[in-house]
Design a protein around this nucleic acid. Structure first.
Lengths: 233, 233
DNA sequence: CCGATGCTTCGGCTATGATCGAAGTATGAA
DNA sequence: TTCATACTTCGATCATAGCCGAAGCATCGG
């Protein structure tokens, strides 16, 4: 009778406000304790514990015990991707509250999506990389030779990345920009490198703040000033 | 406090089994009446009516009145895309029931995703088109000159497509294949053209059945036999 | 051994919402 | 007009599940 996998059970898990808050809080890829998540969700410890057990049983989260703490993180980038997609839908269909505060602007500008850069900067990075011919392809993108040289020069250990099971390049749809940004192993490596070099630092929540030299370096590296205007169409 | 759009309300709508069935039934892009959807969901007419009112209020569906019937369809391709993404997640996390029947195999081979071709054939189409250089780019793909000629020759009115507000080319993630297939206006036009020419016909539900000449024509057009083996890596 | 902290389990309360029968409204056909 | 079909609205029932207080484990520090 039914066709394809059953989405109801998974969707129901995302449909409770407390659980949705928990998942949203985890979207930056960090691992948080039960107490932290309880506060983020606005419920007591017991309630959060119950929700986390369900999310864990459904394999949306993975748990890790360290001493008397228990850390939870999203079980994979695909979970974050579905959450972003849902945010996009929620926004288009008008389910979003007014929210035009300054925090919202910061979020749209640059934020963490699981473990890589998202928002205007994230989309700009991917576009720039493609314009320069560093990356080619649609969804399963591949690195060009030029790209390999570029990112190696940037301080990324590509050999290391390609050893892992995770795809190196992956398009991830951005809920605020409606375009793709760069996920995958390379996306993650790029962000952590940019944090290392002081281009960007983590702000509260998922917000990322670019430093002055970060903006300069970023725009120079990905040739954004050149392409910004010619892209108006 | 909260970051980004609120996903809980949207997700909750998808989380009820009856509503999930309704949406799944609409994923082929057709418009169905209240009675048809009630049967698909396995609930009475009144109950379905209530669900549909909610989905409509949330802008996930659009209603259209014709005589004493009321037709509902998904409000856009993005809804179908989120549903497919959720199916992918449901599958990975093991929320799917056993389901290895023959119907399932047919679904994986070729099916309708909103209004375009999905499944193995859908993914093969996009890969073939890219290998031949008909389409370039990542998520927001563009047609090459060669591609314009090819699809015009195929019987697609590109000028017509480009007049609409809908993107001509769009990558849509396939839950069964874990790769992109071609959506957008071109994806839709290609499928209806393939139905017109008798390459493929609609089976029950979302299943698409290729005819013999359809398989031949399809593989020849998109040069699949050539690339199938050389793609093993 | 003790107490403190972090988390889980249990039990009971409560609210939400899914469901359907029955009655009401609109459209179409005879 | 009269009847039938397609759908909506109302009302009542009922099950689910979210929630928290309280008690129970486990781990750490002393």
């Amino acid at each position: 009778m039914k066709e394809g996998p059953v989405i109801a059970s998974v969707a129901a898990l995302l449909g409770d406000p407390a659980r949705a808050n928990i998942l949203t809080a985890l979207m930056d890829g960090r691992a948080l304790t039960v107490s932290e998540l309880a506060e983020a969700a606005g419920v007591t410890l017991q309630t959060a514990s119950g929700h986390l057990a369900k999310l864990d049983a459904a394999n949306l989260l993975t748990a890790e015990k360290q001493g008397r703490h228990r850390y939870f993180r999203l079980s994979g980038p695909d979970v974050a991707q579905v959450l972003e997609a849902l945010m996009g839908l929620a926004q288009r269909t008008g389910a979003t509250r007014v929210r035009t505060g300054p925090k919202d602007a910061a979020l749209r500008s640059a934020r963490i999506c699981y473990d890589h850069l998202a928002g205007e900067r994230g989309v700009a990075l991917l576009k720039g990389a493609q314009r320069q011919g560093l990356i080619k392809g649609e969804k399963d993108m591949i690195l060009t030779e030029k790209g390999r040289a570029f990112f190696a020069d940037f301080g990324i250990d590509l050999a290391q990345l390609e050893k892992g099971r995770r795809p190196v390049c992956r398009a991830c749809l951005d809920w605020s920009e409606r375009h793709s940004h760069l996920g995958g192993g390379l996306g993650a490596a790029l962000l952590s490198r940019m944090i290392e070099t002081g281009w960007v630092r983590r702000d509260v929540g998922r917000v990322l703040a670019f430093t002055c030299e970060g903006v300069e370096g970023f725009e120079a590296a990905f040739m954004l000033s050149a392409g910004k205007d010619s892209e108006a169409a």
